[in-house]
Design a protein around this nucleic acid. Structure first.
Length: 647
RNA sequence: GCCGAUGUAGCUCAGGUGGUAGAGCAAUUGAUUCGUAAUCAAUAGGUCCGCGGUUCGAGUCCGCGCAUCGGCUCCA
């Protein structure tokens, strides 16, 4: 006998195994249910519906629309696509093709990269295969048999993969149509589940095994869903995401530009963007002063020797901009070399060292909206999200070992408050020592890592470990936020550093009258102001909340006879610190409203004969064209102030 | 940095197979004074990313460079 759970709600069934496949067992109970599920789960392991459950097994079913079900569906779609690719390009060698978040990909080794036309041809072939239909057949084979098989087919990458499988590992093959692949499974019973539910999305280069030293393969991305409708909904979502693209909105809302003649990766802030940024920075200054940080400022470049001392020259040089200045014409040498700062820590340490420090002074929390330059590879630049010059909301906390936990906790709380304020959920990662290119003793790395782990534990925070992903001078906690479209972005980071205090000989006089070495925490909350604004633009789709909107109110007059009163209203609002613009153009009201709407101004004040006569304003909300009752200006100001207070 | 695609007016985009460029919006001017998402008309506007090459002739073909886009690697 075995136990079958047909669905979460129904009670478990007790059935004889009778050598029937899972598929047959489910079909025997509920034919309709069969189309909703794509795999089984026995003792936490996913299995094919085609598999034969053993006596005593307890079987749960995996629905196509569940996370695991989608992954099975997409993995199967990847196989079908690989078959299509080899049908169109018989020489193409297959490598790996997993299911990923929102879809799947498969990497191929081909002589010539795929063109967009190739992609269309492959999709056409794929659809033809789905129309024809085929089953997925699992076969378990001996290692040598698998190697021989793939070698005979010329699939060198598969041979490489098999050779690396640990001894004793079951080697399974799946065949669908003409395509055989090395695969752990499970897969769909047949390809009918995929009909109308698969879409190929893009082609891109990708390194074999993600290593840039390896050969570049051709990757095809696609996606698959449990139903045609779900696929359509996803494709619609992608279109919506495109509309929110901060590069598009940044141009439309005239916030910023990045221009060739100034240099790639250098953001030029236009008036509205610069205002938005200033508002965000003012918010940051207030938040930091509230929490006992002191605002400091350092120079844009420092002598190269200082960067050598810090280790940046050895470990970060390829990302740094340098400049040499000859002191005067008689300077026969190369002149003094300077490094433009890629990080803000050096000046902060110099500030610390400008006095003798007592344990009574600690912790010291230096905060700087520090603008840094980093020469990022050209291929990674991306709007505001990846640039070569950006401003960090950077702080360095210098404290005693006893204060360390509390300071880390304080930062974690700070992060939580700010993320809540903006409404971003987030997750935590702990990044440990990189394998190469790092400084400091093992003991210090262990101490620093332990301190971070302890702080996470004390605050009962969940996190995942990101081995080898730390900064060159210390381990870090990275905070990843999730935006309105469920995409993750790294912003905040907390780094624990025992090394730079050593290198810069930071010290304080303890209770015992002796010199001690303090510990330094590097941390950012928003991370890069540029990146954060890029995220905010996409998160709000350009419709910023009142406190951040560069323009809060637009006055729209019906005809130019109302401009005089309109100007009066504008002045009253401006005097009340409301950011207001007036549209006095000789255009029809509808057009003025349309434009204010497209510019996503939170409030419009319509002013015509009625308002002039009754000395009121008629507010219109950005939100779906809702309007408020006409009211006196003072009342409208109170309304705005009320909304701002709710922050 | 690597692979591929793209680069035409301020913006969004047309311009089979080579014969010195067009539309809509925006701008300017004029008319219109019109109450909740586009009033009408006229005018002006372009080193067709840059530099070489092929050709009688290049926006169009070739090479190199720059930039952007989609990914990979890297990262705040």
């Amino acid at each position: 006998m075995l136990t079958l759970h047909l669905s979460e709600n129904s009670s478990a069934l007790s059935l004889p195994a009778e050598g029937k496949t899972l598929l047959a067992l489910v079909a025997g109970q509920d034919k309709a249910r069969l189309r909703e599920v794509v795999a089984g789960k026995i003792a936490g392991k996913l299995v094919d519906l085609q598999s034969l459950p053993a006596d005593g097994d307890e079987i749960f079913l995996v629905e196509a629309a569940s996370e695991e079900g989608l992954s099975v569906l997409r993995h199967s779609a990847a196989h079908v696509m690989a078959e299509a690719v080899q049908a169109v390009f018989p020489q193409a060698k297959v490598t790996i093709g997993p299911a990923i978040k929102d879809g799947f990909y498969y990497d191929f080794d081909v002589e010539k990269p795929f063109t967009p036309e190739d992609l269309e041809a492959i999709e056409k072939q794929l659809k033809a295969q789905l129309k024809k239909g085929s089953t997925f057949v699992r076969r378990e084979v001996e290692r040598q048999e698998a190697i021989d098989l793939f070698r005979a087919m010329g699939e060198d990458y598969k041979v490489e993969l098999i050779n690396e499988l640990p001894a004793g590992e079951t080697i399974s093959l799946y065949q669908s149509g003409k395509f055989v692949d090395l695969c752990r499974g499970p897969h769909l019973p047949d390809t009918s589940y995929l009909k109308g539910c698969v879409k190929l999305l893009s082609v891109a280069g990708a390194y074999w095994r993600g290593d840039e030293k390896n050969r570049m393969l051709q990757r095809i991305y696609g996606t698959a869903f449990a139903s045609k409708e779900a696929l359509q909904a996803h494709l619609f979502m992608l279109e919506e995401a495109k509309k929110r693209d901060h590069r598009k909105l940044g141009k439309e809302l005239d916030l910023f530009s990045i221009q060739d003649e100034a240099g790639a990766g250098f953001v030029i802030w236009h008036p509205k963007g610069a205002l938005l940024r200033t508002l965000l920075e003012d918010f940051e200054r207030r938040q930091h002063l509230k929490r006992g940080y002191q605002i400091v400022m350092g120079p844009q470049m420092l002598k190269a020797d200082l960067w050598k001392r810090s280790g940046h020259f050895d470990h970060y040089r390829e990302n740094m901009y340098f400049t040499r200045i000859k002191e005067d014409a008689s300077d026969s040498g190369e002149g003094q070399e300077y490094g433009i700062k890629p990080m803000n820590c050096l000046a902060h340490m110099l500030i610390y060292n400008s006095h003798l420090r007592s344990y009574r002074d600690l912790p010291l929390r230096y905060f700087e909206l520090g603008t840094v330059h980093r020469h990022e590879p050209s291929g990674v630049l991306h709007g505001l999200l990846r640039v070569r010059c950006f401003t960090q909301d950077d702080a360095h906390i210098i404290c005693t070992p006893e204060q360390l936990q509390q300071e880390i906790t304080g930062i974690l709380e700070f992060v939580a408050e700010v993320m809540n304020f903006f409404g971003f959920p987030y997750s935590l990662e702990l990044s440990t020592r990189p394998e190469e290119k790092s400084i400091g003793s093992d003991a210090d790395w262990e101490r620093a890592t332990a301190a971070l782990i302890q702080a996470l534990a004390e605050n009962q925070l969940d996190y995942v470990i990101n081995a080898g992903d730390g900064a060159f001078y210390g381990p870090k906690i990275d905070i990843k936020l999730k935006d309105a479209l469920n995409r993750e972005w790294q912003c905040a980071t907390i780094q624990c550093d025992f090394t730079l205090p050593e290198r810069f000989d930071l010290s304080y006089i303890g209770k015992d009258g002796e010199k001690h070495r303090p510990i330094m925490l590097h941390r950012v909350i928003l991370g890069s102001i540029e990146r954060f604004i890029g995220i905010l633009i996409e998160h709000y789709a350009g419709a910023f909340p009142l406190w951040l909107a560069p323009e809060q109110v637009r006055i729209v007059t019906v005809t130019d006879a109302h401009n005089e009163y309109g100007a009066e209203v504008a002045k009253i609002l401006r005097d009340a610190d409301i950011r207001v613009e007036a549209d006095f153009r000789n255009e029809k009201l509808g057009k003025k409203i349309r434009e204010a709407q497209l510019e996503k101004v939170p409030y419009m004040l319509v002013i015509g004969d009625q308002e002039v006569t009754t000395k009121t304003v008629a507010p219109r909300l950005r939100k779906q064209g809702e309007t408020l009752e006409p009211m006196r200006v003072e009342k409208f100001i109170a309304h705005l102030q009320d909304e701002l207070k709710k922050l």
